[in-house]
Design a protein around this nucleic acid. Structure first.
Lengths: 350, 350
DNA sequence: CTGAAAGCGCTAACAA
DNA sequence: TTGTTAGCGCTTTCAG
């Protein structure tokens, strides 16, 4: 059993109150000699405050709940690492929950979070569009947490905090427009699940870019994946069947599946099929034909989320809710074929 | 403020003890009617037990500390996800600490862990060979934790638990032997930091395989990286300067740097240089020339670690310490050139 | 400057 | 079956 302030008090022949005061460094409350004596025996006894007791007495836990999706996606891992670093450096301990796609256990997690006395929550998981049960439960959870929440999406929360969001609509627009500018006319996309709001945002960007380019939107040209490489395995074969010459993948991870399939079919990127991704994970650069993509500043966003949360926790008088929106940037590498653009110019075909 | 058992007791006109008993589901201790009445008002009041209070009273936290290295490495993320899943499903909450390479803050983390009352620790971070300060502090920490620890390496701990370790020596041996069997004679390697035991183990495997193949070990043929892609960036150029025809990279992540450099120099794998990695992360398969590698069963190991820890926590009478050693398996793909082997046969050159 | 005492929310004997 | 009581380790008035 660890040493307690009682042990120290006994050794130093003072009361536990004095020990507590001295340890807390309340200057002027305890004499210098007593303080040093207490500090010394505390060190000797390897005293560590019992957090449960401290929390119980102070209602202060220095605990933050982090709700994330699958970290095997490098982009998510980047976000998480940035969060961890900031929280760590500010003395917060992080309680980590990975949510699966169903988020069916949001009820359990929410009560766990309540009970564990987290002082704030970082929510970095897709929000659903369809108003099914899990949707309502998440909304309810986010709104009733009673502690500051920083959210990865705009969810119109009632409590204090900041939404750190990325403009996925713009990302979808930019990626698609680039493809159009390169002369592509039949542009497929590999979407995430249809009921994720972040999917819908990208899809709108994609559609608006098409419209701007006077290309009709064809629902058959969108393949619905799940943001994982494995789930996007059939995408290429499907989209090729639709005669697409270029594909906007809603994240890099799924674009990698396109690469893999392309090799399997003996097709080359970008000669036979152009691909653009989204996220800009480091692996894009490892590919023989580096993946053109849309940069999402995961680490900056993670830092911003964590810092905002700490601010919200420590200045809890500030009850307003604000937003920080990050803009996308195109990263052009080698995976999009410009030949079509040349054709367009040379032949006046389109 | 959340509802407490006191609130429930007041509403139900019973004592807090009765509420506690009823909520704990101790059958036979509280009458059926009272129990349902209590359960109902608990639900109505949205009662959630205060964990701090429970821990304080029971010395039971359902908290597990997880010490990991950088999760941006997919292999580590895989390990982590498996751990998280098992812990989650057994009702444990996980407190996550990412250690940096210095692990300089092991002191702070260790006291944080002690104070937070974790019931067990999962340690998945490289152990250092050189007996410098951080080495001793980690050893001390691991040995004095006072709770079961499951470790990723054999560290000869005194407390209960199981080491879930991977035979990196064998991994190094197999990878190198494969390269030799393919006819390579000048085989470089991209090591991790020299003072990591896992590096040293692989290096021994590499040396023993060379010796078995009657190839002299040349220290100039080992490039020391840091297990990250970025850190291995100069490796290829260096090793090419040493006339190597094949490279064993101590993990896939660094092998990716080799790929990237190869593209930059206009070299192809495996025609100009053969590469074999270690870990077998999913990206290996995305590369145009899939990376041959040594499979490390991250997810199985993660599950095993978490399950062993739970067993150790729940049957803390079992004070023995055991080991589970995982064996490597070669995964042969396209990144190693066999031409040298043919030459060897045809020309009898070697 | 220091100590006594109460209380944070819960559990666990022991009585009744 | 239920209530009383004490206590987990710490903080924090309030007296002294």
């Amino acid at each position: 059993m660890n040493a307690t302030i009682k042990d120290i008090a006994l050794e130093c022949c003072v009361s536990t109150a004095t020990v507590s005061l001295a340890l807390a460094g309340k200057k002027g409350r305890v004499s210098a000699e007593t303080t040093t004596r207490i500090l010394e025996t505390a060190a000797r006894l390897q005293y560590t405050p019992n957090r449960a007791a401290v929390s119980l007495a102070t209602h202060h836990t220095k605990l933050v709940g982090v709700l994330m999706s699958d970290l095997r996606n490098t982009h998510i891992a980047q976000l998480f690492m940035a969060i961890e670093e900031v929280l760590q450096s500010h003395g917060y301990t992080l309680i980590c929950h990975v949510l699966d796609d169903k988020t069916a256990d949001i009820g359990r997690i929410s009560s766990e979070l309540n009970g564990s006395g987290v002082e704030g929550i970082l929510y970095a998981h897709p929000i659903f569009l369809d108003p099914d049960e899990s949707f309502y439960r998440i909304r309810e959870f986010l709104n009733n947490a009673g502690v500051p929440i920083i959210c990865n999406e705009d969810v119109g929360l009632t409590c204090a905090g900041m939404d750190v969001i990325f403009d996925f609509y713009q990302a979808g627009y930019l990626a698609t427009r680039h493809l159009i500018e390169c002369g592509h006319q039949v542009i497929g996309c590999v979407s995430g699940p249809a009921n994720y709001r972040v999917s819908e945002q990208r899809l709108r960007g994609y559609r608006d870019a098409l419209e701007e380019g006077s290309i009709a939107y064809d629902p058959k040209l969108v393949y619905y994946g799940d943001y994982s490489t494995a789930g996007a395995e059939p995408a290429l074969s499907y989209l090729l069947g639709q005669k697409t010459t270029a594909i906007f993948s809603f994240n890099d991870e799924m674009a990698f599946a396109l690469y893999r399939s392309a090799h399997q079919y003996g097709l080359s990127i970008p000669q036979d099929i152009s691909v653009i991704g989204c996220d800009n994970v480091p692996f894009c650069n490892v590919l023989e034909v580096p993946l053109s993509t849309v940069h999402v500043p995961a680490e900056e966003m993670g830092r911003e989320m964590a810092e905002s949360l700490i601010t919200a926790i420590e200045e809890s008088h500030n009850k307003s809710r604000t937003q920080h929106i990050y803009a996308p940037a195109l990263i052009l590498r080698g995976s999009v074929n410009r030949r079509y653009a040349d054709n367009a110019t040379k032949l006046g075909k389109y």
